[in-house]
Design a protein around this nucleic acid. Structure first.
Lengths: 205, 205, 205, 205
DNA sequence: TGATAACCGAGACGGTACGTCACGTCTTTAA
DNA sequence: TTAAAGACGTGACGTACCGTCTCGGTTATCA
């Protein structure tokens, strides 16, 4: 009783303002879309967010942390479980369309680029990208199970390989070809991977 | 006329040393592999090449030009026409294996990243990447023609779509999964795209 | 009157703790001796005193106020009336020795420096220094009266001029020469000012 | 012959502009007079001199170096040998008047303050002050020799002690009393030290 | 025995300045 | 003309204090 508690209360002190968080993360996303991951300057973010540079450093100690936080919310946009459409094709298109749409937005492109240029493991925005990857994998698992039950899935074929190939195709289109992301294109690619290049002798003429 | 000519001779003055070119481009590649495209500092390149900063700027006015020049030679490594193996599968694996091997090298990874993170069109190393793309497309054309003749190619299927999908898969593996680039994996992916996900009822058991 | 008084009670509420005052002023003195007046950081004082920065600002609104408070006590050390030794020389040495000793301590040096570098009138520790000055002047007055009675004081010579000259000599030694402050040195200087540079023809050979 | 010289030529490269030197040192002096040694901000100096902060740091690596350079020229103002006036009194007044005038100027005050608050030996502007001290000592030596020849100098009395005492008096007046520096006052102090406090029995009645 | 009021610790926040690094341009000497 | 060397303006880096501002919890005194 005589000794004062002196315990570090977590909730002590002036609480962090929401305004700062919002303004900074928004400005960060804008910067990412404009100047890219490289070329993102904390100083400029601070200016645009009308927030002090020191304040940013207080909350997000490294540039990586800042970018990760900014992409956090964005990445959640893709989440949300893919519905069962009754066919493998429908399921795949449904799942991938979200990804495709996401990558087509400036923010999404930023995430993708950040992830792809991430130098070291677990760096920068790779975390946000990894979360996206995780979600996609989960959705894929259910999808494969259903497809196998319907006999639409080649026995032993890993779902990962399929989804990685398709996501790769999307990235190629978005970041290399700079071509528009249409539903038609996506369905064509899905068809390609589902049915293959080599003609099916028994089925189509 | 007693006065000397004073014509603008192109070859007048001290000639550009080869030593400088070599040292600079080598140092640039080293930097690319070490620090990545972002994080490449001309100042450091100059120091490592034991060449003056100003000299670099004289020859390659922008960072993009420097990087492009450094990657120039590298990209040619992938070139060289793909031989006719007699099967579509063999042709495709042969063509893609070069790409896969290339992307697996530090220099190749640098090209890939540079291309993917290229902000504006025709920037940075996108040029080098585009050349790679061009070469691949040419090779692909011949390949498709042969395959069609053998009935191995689905009528009307664009070769581009196939190659883009497969290159996308390679990039995904190299830059996102950080997984090793094995021949086995490549063949599996080629098989996937050739035969498709959905089992062939009539043919294989 | 049914309504309660609602008078502002001055003495209500939790009283200011002595612990804080002591710890802060002590830490301030330590800082002054270590880092000097410039270079004194409230933040560091707070850390060393294990007291919150805000608490310091609440009590001493400006840095000047803090320093002044810290030096308050110290300056009193010099006070205490100088005894009558029977000779002008003895009186002067007695009076100045306190000053000399004081200036030789870290705290005293801090006061002196603070006073000398005081930018504006009545700033920083100038107050503390002024108090010291005041005390010295008072002591001097009595001393001069006694000396005049004994015929030891040149008629019309202001005591101030003498004491200022001697204190100046002390400061010069302490702050510029960084030489040790010995009793012998002090007596020599007093002798100098008492007897002068020019030899006395009639008296000593 | 085959190996290039690669010697570091001192004179190579763009020479340092005079404009920068002048503007910076002038602005530094202004800052010193305004804000004092503490409170001198390189950033502000750069702004006022319309010169870049980095440029300042390139030339004067530390704040101390900058201040020292700025005071360099100023300190020379006091230099110049003191003429032989024929009397000890005249010589002393002549020598000290320069010092007094110097300390009375804003720049001189800055030097004095800087020297007095110099924390460590050989720091900041202590160098400039030391040069001043050196000059004064030299001048003093000649003065004492002459005075001794005329029988005006107490045998065995160190010139240093006299000059330090008188300079101490000047500093006291300039920095503590904030009193004006008049010729009359200076002569009175010199008289005090020359003739002493104790009346001369033989001479005055 | 509560209400009331001040004290105090904790931390957020907008500022200013720090000293360093790299940028790309410019100016000068030597080869 | 090329090359080496370096000056210079510019912009950003990440850190340290400044002084002000909310908070929440404590500790006295007074009704």
């Amino acid at each position: 009783m005589g000794t004062p508690q002196r315990s570090r209360r977590r909730d002590a002190g002036r609480p962090r303002g929401q305004r700062v968080t919002d303004a900074v993360l928004e400005a960060t996303l804008a910067e990412l879309a404009t100047a890219g991951l490289a070329g993102l300057s904390v100083e400029r973010v601070a200016r645009n967010a009308e927030v002090n540079k020191t304040t940013i450093y207080r909350r997000w100690p490294t540039r990586a942390a800042l970018v990760a936080a900014a992409l956090e919310g964005i990445a959640d946009a893709v989440a949300g479980h893919a519905p069962d459409t009754g066919t493998l094709r429908g399921d795949l298109v449904g799942l991938l369309w979200r990804v495709a749409e996401f990558v087509a937005t400036p923010g999404g492109r930023a995430v993708a680029r950040a992830a792809l240029s991430a130098q070291a493991e677990a760096d920068v925005a790779a975390l946000a990208a990894r979360r996206l990857e995780q979600h996609t994998s989960d959705a894929m698992e259910a999808l494969v199970t259903r497809a196998e039950a319907r006999g639409e899935w080649l026995h032993g074929l890993p779902g990962e390989r399929v989804i990685h190939t398709l996501v790769g195709a999307i990235l190629h289109r978005a970041l290399l070809e700079h071509a528009p992301m249409t539903r038609d294109w996506l369905e064509d690619v899905v068809d390609l991977v589902l049915l293959g290049v080599v003609p099916r002798t028994g089925s189509t003429g």
